[in-house]
């Protein structure tokens, strides 16, 4: 049997342990989809696969047990899913393109969760449109609030929703619900002064617990959607580590631009000998130094006035 495994992988299929048998990998950017696509995926599994579906750790579906020769027909059946999920596709009918940059994952976000500061799926889809398809190994994840249910700190780019709390002292009745919530559930940056509340702006993480706790509407959310951007968390064999803060109070435009700039940076500095043409960005940054990365990443980026850039950034993690 002859099969170009490089092309197979670029088409979002997997080389499995069983010869001649592949698995189709269906990405769902932002992890939220219309239920009707599930029956299409079921149909593929029943018709060409072994009747099972694996729910992946990156919010996709993997349909195992597909014969190599059925890949074109699987791609045909995937076409409405790909179109429905608004995936950038170079060749219509040709299945999922590229498998280097991983599916952009997201927690459930503010379509459902009261804590979320924004629509995580929508922003994930926006990033999807900006960066896909791409062969480089980037992991991007979005989470609605600093609880980080999506574990974005384990990603190259972690996007964490924040809200800048707005305080209307004339509606504050000093019930202290916010002060208690901030102390017990967050970072304890609110205190009562003269029966009103003072917020330590430098230490506030923008989680919105005060807004959620406030019974009078004295605390409300800021009108701008702002984020914390964390960098280069990773799992893996050599040096797994948590992502570190890069920018606090950054906006969507800037985040997208920074990610795109990082693709340029990686293209410039990636180890040409990297196995499979993939190298975790963090190792590249270790090589070039953070300052070089920062220069590339922030090129032509207009950060909001309140954005705080952390520099220099150091990572720790476990070293083997």
């Amino acid at each position: 049997m002859d099969m170009n495994t490089k092309l197979l992988k670029k088409n979002a299929f997997r080389v499995t342990k069983e010869r001649g048998i592949t698995a189709s990998r269906v990405r769902v950017p932002g992890g939220h989809l219309e239920a009707k696509y599930l029956s299409m995926i079921q149909n593929i599994a029943d018709t060409y696969g072994n009747g099972t579906i694996h729910i992946t750790s990156r919010q996709g579906f993997e349909i195992p047990g597909i014969k190599f020769e059925d890949m074109p027909r699987v791609n045909e059946l995937l076409q409405p899913v790909i179109e429905g999920l608004n995936i950038n596709q170079e060749l219509p009918g040709g299945g999922y393109p590229a498998a280097g940059t991983r599916n952009i994952t997201a927690c459930i976000g503010n379509r459902v969760c009261p804590y979320a500061c924004y629509d995580t799926t929508a922003f994930a889809q926006r990033i999807e449109k900006a960066v896909f398809p791409n062969d480089l190994h980037f992991k991007i994840a979005l989470t609605g609030c600093p609880n980080d249910c999506a574990k974005v700190r384990m990603h190259d780019f972690g996007i964490m929703g924040m809200t800048e709390p707005q305080y209307d002292k004339d509606r504050c009745v000093n019930c202290e619900a916010c002060v208690k919530a901030c102390k017990k559930k967050s970072v304890n940056v609110l205190k009562t002064v003269n029966y009103k509340v003072e917020r330590n702006e430098a230490k506030c993480i923008g989680c919105g617990e005060c807004v959620l706790a406030c019974p009078t509407g004295a605390w409300t959310r800021g009108s701008e959607k702002l984020y914390r951007l964390t960098l280069f968390g990773r799992t893996g064999k050599k040096n797994p580590r948590m992502g570190e803060d890069f920018i606090k109070w950054v906006d969507e435009e800037s985040i997208i631009k920074i990610i795109l700039n990082t693709y340029d940076y990686v293209n410039n500095y990636i180890d040409p000998e990297a196995p499979g043409g993939k190298e975790h960005i963090g190792y590249i940054v270790d090589r070039t130094g953070f300052e070089e990365f920062r220069k590339w990443a922030l090129k032509d980026v207009k950060l909001p006035d309140m954005a705080e850039v952390y520099t220099p950034v150091y990572w720790k993690g476990i070293k083997y």
Binding site: N110, A116, C117, T163, L212, G217, T220, S223
Partner: peptide, 15 residues
Amino acid sequence: RMEGKGAFSDTDSVR
């Protein structure tokens, strides 16, 4: 209707 002034993000408050 106060846009975005509900307790949850992207929700409004009527005051």
